[in-house]
Write a protein that binds this DNA or RNA. Sequence first.
DNA 1: GGGAATTGATATC
DNA 2: TTCCAGATATCAATTCCC
Length: 593
Amino acid sequence: MNEPIFHFYGNKAGVEGADQIKQVIDDATRGSEYYKRQQEKRLQVLQKVNKMQIELENYNKNEQRKKDIKEIIQNKVKEFQINTDRIWAHFDMDMFYVACELLDKPELIDKPVAVGQSIVSTANYVARKYGVRSAMPTFVAKKLCPDIIFIPCHFEKYKSVSNIFMTILKKYDDNLESMGLDEANLDLTQYINNSQEDPAILCENIRKDIFLATQLTASCGVGPNKMIAKLASEINKPNGLHVVQQSPIAVLSFLEKLPVRKIPGIGNITEQILSGLNFNTCKDVRDRADELYIIFTPKTFEYIFYSCWGVSRNYHVEFEDQHSISCQRTFSSISTQKEFEDKVDYIAEKLAEEMQSEEKVGNHLTLIIKTSKFEIRNKSLQLNQYTNQSKQIALYGKQLLKIMQLDEPIRLLGLKMSSLANEKQIQKQSISTYFKKQFDKSNDQENQIASNMGSKSHNIYEDSNPILKVQLQQPEQSKPEIISDDEVSSISNQIISGVNSKSNQSQAQQQKFQQKQQAQPKSFNCPICNKDIDCKGNNTVLNKHIDRCINQQNVIAEQSDESNKNVKDSKKKVSSKIENKAQKSLNFFKKGP
DNA sequence: GGGAATTGATATC
DNA sequence: TTCCAGATATCAATTCCC
């Protein structure tokens, strides 16, 4: 294999040895609010474990029940098969962010280096030798390794290297599932069936290609499904390959001594629970699956149980739309209402920017805060309309703030918008609904001139699309704020009075619109350009006009987005899109068989 | 009582 | 000198409401 340019060891002064490392971390963090919160959480987990232990004791005393549950488990074991028809590979770039940085700073190769600012994102192997790990606060990392060099994140750089990495892999599986910038799952079955290559040789060659193209090393695991391949990729990390043969026996023996914590989806807390109940390896889970069945909920049980038997998804899953967009910031503690509200304004603006650049609107808002004691709380609100406008988001955010009744300092505030929809799709749907209503009304007006002004135009205002509504009100702006200040206060009043109805538009607004309608019964007011179109009742004329307008608006929106993109911090953009996809892949993977 | 909505916990990169 | 991130997802428990 190629010669790695990075040395995966270190010899500088610093803290080494597990006990010493633990001591330094303890000393550095003891007494902090974070530490106290962690202690509380540990206590909660212990209490949970104690409860479960009692439950298990009772269960083990009841012979009949034990017999019944064991039978259920035996049937489950009989039912499934460890499918070894397919060949999966998982590629993972070694210490990716740091490795990318070291390409530009080769003089640092033998020094302890980490990427990150307040938190370590990735550390090189020199730094890891001193106990520096991902997600560790930088001040602790400095205690462990005083000479450590921190480099800020440069996501654009990582993205471009990642593109090369992914391009190489796509030659072998065009549908690969990327899990972040530095990891990917490939279904090699078809490629290997066609080429008849040996999987191990093929993957070694791919690793060579990656190295030649990027000067960076990747580790690889091969197995009959995604999970086994991922687990295998960690065996000979860094710069190594491990193959789990395509047989059930090989899979079971690979998992036999594997700590349950290695299973993706089993994190710190679940590990604490499992080890508290003496489930340490996959074999423990397999041997005492009936006990697992007793203490966990069905979904959790199934996931852990099947994973420990090596049963996991072995097919690609379709990409799903994003479910939420959020924005949160940590800051030094704030405690006054004014400061809270200012933060809401700021975060709302950031969230709106993100949503607009993604062309998404949403109608479910969640306010997230973290107190200075590291407690996380959230409140959410179902909005009566889709929006991606900062003023509206801020307004609802402040209402959530009131509901939350914060009476202590906070260190983080965030807003999350869910129930997302595509901005343009919603726009078009609403336009056609609006258009239909207008047309119906026009016909109606021929027969009933001005006799029923009230309810019909009211219906138009009930339309759930804020974009449409604003364009009706503020036609002169090409990229308007979605609501005027008047409307903001109108909405504000609605919220504050607790009225949550779509029909709560001001009388004045309605009348203004109705008057316009009445004055031109056979013409239509275009919701895009706000011009009145004399269509003489001809649908085609109107359709053509609206189509033209939509296209023009799309161009404007794209141009505006483009300039936004340039201004925006590239980091978040790249990471959120890629990682979102990655997270989805992972979650599908986590769902089990 | 049961489904929907909300909140909290957990996980991952 | 510095004192523990941010984005997104799923599942489970709790609360709300018909």
